[in-house]
Design a protein around this nucleic acid. Structure first.
Length: 272
DNA sequence: AGTCGCCTGGTA
DNA sequence: TACCAGGCGACT
């Protein structure tokens, strides 16, 4: 799915097209899309609300609406959100349309139907969002914070990076990229990491996520920003999806293995 | 902590 | 035809 840099890029591209706009019509074409409400309730509640501001928490997009409501969207693997003229033909697998007063429409489409939308009161957020770990690019996220979050847990470092309750927003691509940059083998257990390695990991996490945003996200296949444009970070990846190719540091072959059900790419020479 | 289900489509 | 995919939650 879109990870933190992709979701942030979507937020940045949608923001100018949504702030101050009103929803004058809504439609949902897939019942299970709406996580916490019956579709009828959802449509009733969202009608005639206005977009006040857009935020992001981990991989969740948060649309703050008038009436103290928050619309959340989680894109999971193949979800896409874009604003386009309401008269444009509907793309395949479009499951939600929010028609705006300016003639445009916010559309959600999702090939694999894993994405989820929720609508809640600003004072009663989704439990899953409440439980998220710190934002890795915020000032509150320090090396000390990372150490405290990991808390000597006896799990592989790759698994820890993917745990949204430890740190929010890292997915499979940026986890592999961060571990390569830090020179740490993905199967290393947390308690075995030295203070120096934890600091390298901290810096690597911040670097790969920042680069991802600067490059407007990684488009392997489905990812598009809120304008429908792909990102370019896929051209900058150091290990992800480079199985069998030469390591950019040592020239040996990048390998791919399965860790915890996820494809994991690394350099067996550079990552110890 | 590990596995399965959710879904569809592209590729080996 | 089988396997794989950027994720997560519900199971055991």
């Amino acid at each position: 799915m879109p990870e933190l840099p992709e979701v942030e890029t979507i937020r940045l591209t949608l923001e100018p097209k949504l702030i101050g706009k009103s929803i004058i019509g809504a439609a949902v074409h897939f019942e299970k899309l709406i996580q916490n409400l019956a579709v009828d309730d959802f449509l009733k509640q969202i009608d005639h609300k206005q977009f006040v501001r857009l935020s992001r928490r981990g991989k969740y997009l948060l649309f703050y609406l008038s009436g103290d409501l928050v619309l959340t969207v989680h894109l999971r693997m193949t979800g896409q959100l874009m604003v386009e003229p309401a008269v444009n033909p509907l793309a395949k697998a479009t499951y939600m349309q929010l028609t705006l007063g300016d003639g445009n429409e916010l559309r959600f489409r999702d090939q694999r139907k894993f994405g989820r939308v929720a609508l809640f009161d600003v004072h009663h957020p989704l439990a899953a969002i409440e439980k998220l770990g710190p934002e890795p690019l915020s000032t509150e996220f320090t090396v000390q914070c990372l150490k405290e979050r990991l808390n000597q847990r006896k799990i592989a470092v790759k698994k820890a990076l993917l745990d949204q309750e430890i740190i929010a927003g890292i997915g499979n691509i940026y986890a592999d990229e961060a571990l390569f940059l830090a020179g740490i083998h993905p199967a290393r257990l947390i308690p075995s990491l030295t203070a120096e390695e934890l600091e390298q990991l901290y810096n690597a996490i911040r670097q790969v996520l920042t680069e991802g945003i600067e490059n407007r996200g990684t488009t392997k296949r489905d990812y598009r920003d809120g304008n429908g444009n792909p990102g370019s970070n896929q051209e900058k990846l150091r290990v992800y999806d480079r199985k069998g190719l030469a390591c950019i540091q040592c020239g040996n072959m990048i390998v791919k293995m399965n860790f915890g059900g996820r494809g994991t790419h690394f350099c067996p020479i550079c990552q110890k």
